[in-house]
Simulated scan of single mutants.
Amino acid sequence: MTTTANEPLLVAESVTKVYRTGQQEVVALDELNLTVWRGELVAVMGPSGSGKTTLLNCLSGLDDIDGGRVLVEGRDLFAMSDHERTAHRARSMGFVFQSFNLIPVLDAAENVELPLLLVGVPAREARERAVAMLDKVGLAGRAGHRPNELSGGEQQRVTIARALVAGPAVVWADEPTGNLDSAMAAQVMDLLRRLNEDEGQAIVLVTHDDGIGHSAGRLVTMRDGRLIRDEIRAPAMR
C-alpha cells in the first residue's frame, strides 16, 4: 500500500519503549506521538540519552516496541511477522549510519546495488541503477573502489546512494555527519537536502549539530523519551 497525496507517510501513536536490566526499568520512549509526511526533511535533536536513536530504531522496526503502534504507508509495522517487517523495510526504507556500515570486500557499486539484489532486482538492472545513483552523489568515477580506498566523505556518499537506490519512501539517518569534519559534513548535508528535494523521499535524521538541525525543514526536539518541541521550518510536501 502507498500513501496518497494527503495521507501521512508515517504515524507513531503512543509509542512506548522500555529497557529492562535486572530489576531496573528505563523508559526510553514515553507514549510518543509523531507524524511524518512524504517528502519531509525532519531533524531530531536532544541531549544524549533523550531517546533519539531509539526513536529511529523503533519507527523503522529495527527494535520492538512495548506499547502503541507505528503505521508506515498505512500498514501497522508491528502487526506484521518478522519476515513481513523485514521485507517491508527493504522495500520502503533506507538507512544511513554514522559508521557507514559498508562491506569492505565489495566496491562502491557492489555496496550500492546490494539492497536491489536482496529484493530480487536482476543483476544487470541493479548494477545500472547503482552506477546511476553513484553518479547522482558525485561518485561516478569511484564505482570500482572499495571502502578503504575512499575518504570518509566519499564513504558516506556511498552509504547515501545505497539508502536511496531502491527509491524508499523514507530514509533514516543516525548522526550521518558524526564521523566527518565540518567541511565534509556540510557537503553531505547539502547532498541530503538536494536528494530530498529531487528524489522526494522523506528523510528523518538524528543530529547533535545545531546548524544541521536548524537547517532542516522540520526540527523535532526530544527529552526523556518525549517530544518537547516540533517546529515546522518549511511546508511539508503533501
Rank of each mutant, 00 (worst) to 15 (best):
N6C: 06
L29E: 08
S182F: 01
V170K: 09
V26F: 13
A234Y: 00
N111R: 02
V105S: 15
F97L: 04
M80F: 00
D198G: 10
R162M: 04
G94F: 01
A169W: 10
V72T: 13
L117D: 08
I228E: 12
T221Q: 15
G144Y: 10
D63F: 10
R238L: 14
A28F: 01
Q201M: 14
R146I: 01
L205P: 06
V26W: 12
A12C: 07
S215Y: 05
A5R: 13
M184Q: 15
C58Y: 11
Q24T: 14
L116G: 07
Y19G: 08
G144I: 00
E199V: 15
D64W: 13
V220K: 05
R38Y: 12
G211W: 07
T53G: 06
Q155F: 10
D82Q: 13
L205T: 01
E175F: 12
V188T: 06
N33G: 11
A143S: 04
D64T: 15
R85N: 09
V171Q: 00
A185W: 05
V171M: 03
T86V: 11
L191N: 05
L180H: 08
E149N: 02
E113S: 11
E149H: 09
V26D: 13
E149T: 09
D210R: 14
L77I: 14
P122N: 07
L180W: 11
V26H: 15
A109N: 01
L77A: 15
G178W: 04
L9Q: 06
D107Q: 10
A173P: 04
E149Q: 14
I103L: 14
T159D: 08
F100H: 09
L164Y: 13
M189K: 05
A161I: 09
L77Y: 06
V26C: 12
A202F: 01
D210I: 12
R69E: 14
R85S: 09
R85Q: 07
L180N: 01
G46R: 03
E73Y: 13
V15I: 05
L118C: 05
R89D: 00
V119S: 11
F78I: 08
L192E: 07
G152W: 07
M133C: 00
P147A: 05
G141H: 04
D181N: 05
E154D: 03
L102R: 04
M80E: 01
A12F: 02
D224Y: 07
K52H: 06
I103S: 05
R69A: 12
M133Q: 06
G138Q: 03
V158D: 10
R142F: 12
H83A: 15
L56N: 02
V105C: 13
R124C: 12
N101P: 00
I232T: 15
A173N: 12
V171N: 09
R85G: 05
L29T: 08
N179I: 03
